[in-house]
Simulated scan of single mutants.
Amino acid sequence: MAAQRYTSPLRAEQAAATRRRIVDAAGRLFAEEGYARTTLTRIAASAGVSVETVQAQGPKRSLLTAAVSVTTFGREGDEQFISAPEGRALLAAADLQEFIRRGARLIREFNERTYRMWRAFGAAAADDADVDAEWSQRMAYIRGNIAEVVGVLDGRGWLRTDVARDELATGLWILSTGEVFEKLVVRVGWSPDHYEDWLARSMGDLLLPR
């Protein structure tokens, strides 16, 4: 009889805690130093682990993807947004106006936490084909989640009907990017409140029935 595998709950918990320290350290360094300057050695030193332990977590580009997810949601994983706690809370809105207000606040909060990482991600993608493939996959995932949200809104009869649903999803995806947040808040100098108000108006212009 083959020996049964036994995984110690304590060992699994320790491994998860170690990974979280590594991902958190990588995220801080990516945001502060950029992708190229964030070496595995620096991640290891910041997390208080060996380089070998960092290497065991996967390639550096995957650590960047994980860091974006953890910084955004507090957890890793590619769950459907509409099934996640944040998505369920957003879609609990009583009408489209409330959805827009909640959505603008949520997008602001996400971007305040992650725009520096998205900057590092985009810069690295321009120079590295593997990172670019990861970037493209992440963009497709986000856009797909937004398309699902738009589908729910359309099913409720809340959306304008003179623009294709796919175009509405694409427009909402573009409005919500960290790049737009950075341009308006960091480069132009808007306050986060101003950005949130602008985003809500822009979402309304895009989605509200004519």
Rank of each mutant, 00 (worst) to 15 (best):
Q4C: 07
Q4M: 12
R5H: 07
R5L: 14
P9R: 03
R11V: 15
R11M: 12
E13M: 13
Q14W: 04
T18C: 04
R19S: 11
R19D: 10
R19H: 13
R20P: 03
R21V: 10
I22D: 02
V23N: 03
D24P: 00
A25I: 09
A25S: 15
G27R: 01
R28E: 14
R28C: 10
L29M: 08
L29W: 03
A31N: 05
A36I: 08
T41K: 11
T41A: 15
R42Q: 12
A44D: 05
A44F: 04
S46Q: 15
A47P: 03
A47S: 03
A47N: 04
G48E: 04
V49Y: 02
S50N: 07
E52S: 14
Q55M: 12
A56T: 11
Q57H: 05
G58H: 05
K60I: 11
S62K: 11
L64F: 01
L64N: 03
T65H: 00
V68R: 10
V70R: 11
T71R: 14
F73Y: 14
F73G: 09
G74N: 08
G74L: 07
G77C: 08
D78T: 15
E79C: 04
E79V: 13
Q80M: 11
I82D: 01
I82R: 08
I82L: 10
S83D: 15
A84G: 11
E86I: 11
E86A: 15
D95Q: 08
L96D: 07
R101H: 11
R102K: 14
G103L: 02
G103F: 05
R105Q: 13
E109S: 13
F110A: 11
F110Y: 11
N111H: 06
N111R: 10
E112Y: 01
T114E: 01
T114G: 01
R116F: 02
A120S: 15
A120L: 06
F121N: 10
G122H: 10
A125K: 06
A126Q: 14
A126M: 11
D127K: 12
D128Y: 03
A129K: 06
D130N: 08
V131R: 04
V131E: 03
D132G: 15
A133N: 05
S136G: 13
Q137R: 14
Q137S: 13
Y141G: 05
Y141R: 14
A147I: 09
V150Q: 02
G151H: 02
G155R: 08
D162F: 01
A164P: 04
A169P: 03
T170K: 05
L172I: 09
T177P: 02
G178V: 10
E179T: 15
K183F: 12
G189M: 05
G189V: 10
D193T: 13
E196F: 00
L199E: 01
L199M: 12
L199P: 07
A200E: 06
R201G: 08
G204S: 13
D205S: 13
D205T: 14
L206D: 07
L206H: 04
L208H: 02
P209M: 09
P209I: 12
R210T: 15
